[in-house]
Design a protein around this nucleic acid. Structure first.
Lengths: 164, 164
DNA sequence: GGTAGATAGTTGCATCTGATACTATATCGC
DNA sequence: GCGATATAGTATCAGATGCAACTATCTACC
């Protein structure tokens, strides 16, 4: 019953895992994410979702959680939990939104701003190390292509096309 | 205490999440993975790790699990569980390795080969849809860059540099 | 040839993740 | 204003993931 498939069936001849884009993408992303996640976790006790919230709030200023959801593309549950964790550490502050009793406005605290300023150079250093030796315009193209893939995946999944 | 950070601290000025490569990579990979995972799960009841094992075994023929680990880069626990799931569905067969009592040789069953031949065209169609409209040599470059990033991440994480 | 350390693979556990269900508030239509 | 529906956010549960510990076997060295 066991089959020695050196020569694979004709139908499947075109498929090689190593050259399969979703595979390459996933493996590369996992490697990079693991690296980054470990750095933030070990040195600052931050998860990736938490770090993303900090970044967005530092860039764009206070907003409510649903704005964070659409801004980061993360699940609302993920955002909620990340915000809770950060609030517990007083890196975030949540104030009542008097225009809408359901939502709260989330903002970085002074300490949160300080942490962001501390991590940002490290984050940039990691990026620089990852792309060292690459042509800058190759990097730009890479980012464009990633956005493109993200958009295509969203469309194929039946989402309303938002990115790309 | 709450801080309105429209103009961010100078240190962090260079960091924009949207342009941050690890972020772009993660978001794109998640979007693509979700799409693919759902397709395989819904239509064939396969997880991504299971599908990878099927691919590798179809390409390279029978091998033991540790070979699958190094070939796919997945954790040995992930490989073990994926192999168990596939074996339960009789898509895989495991035979004793008389040269080494610890390991078993894992091979696709006839049914597994059939399933692979059935899914492969779908997998290729997804890839084609994702990259439609892209210049083929851009795609080639993309794959090269992803390998490069994977290798750089591994090196930075202190692994012995294997890929790239 | 027997013991120490390496390797193959599994199990247990702690964590992360996302889908679903739920509460509270807001908005729309009448 | 009042009821139906939508939205903000949280809680709960199921599944995936990976690390660490474990068992079994193999290899090396004395």
């Amino acid at each position: 019953m066991t089959v020695q498939t050196r020569p694979e069936p004709a139908d499947a001849a075109g498929l090689q895992l190593d050259a399969y884009l979703p595979y390459r993408l996933s493996v590369a992303s996992n490697a990079v994410s693991r690296l980054i996640a470990r750095a933030y976790e070990d040195r600052f006790g931050l998860t990736i979702p938490q770090w993303r919230l900090v970044c967005v709030l530092a860039e764009d200023g206070p907003m409510n959680q649903s704005a964070l959801v659409s801004r980061t593309g993360m699940d609302k549950v993920t955002v909620s939990r990340a915000a809770q964790g950060l609030t517990k550490r007083h890196l975030l502050e949540r104030s009542e939104n008097d225009r809408d009793g359901r939502s709260h406005v989330v903002a970085l605290s002074l300490e949160g701003v300080r942490l962001h300023a501390e991590i940002a150079p490290l984050a940039l250093a990691y990026e620089a190390a990852l792309i060292s030796g690459l042509d800058p315009h190759e990097v730009a193209l890479l980012k464009r292509l990633l956005l493109r893939l993200q958009g295509a995946a969203g469309v194929l999944a039946g989402e309303t096309p938002s990115p790309g």
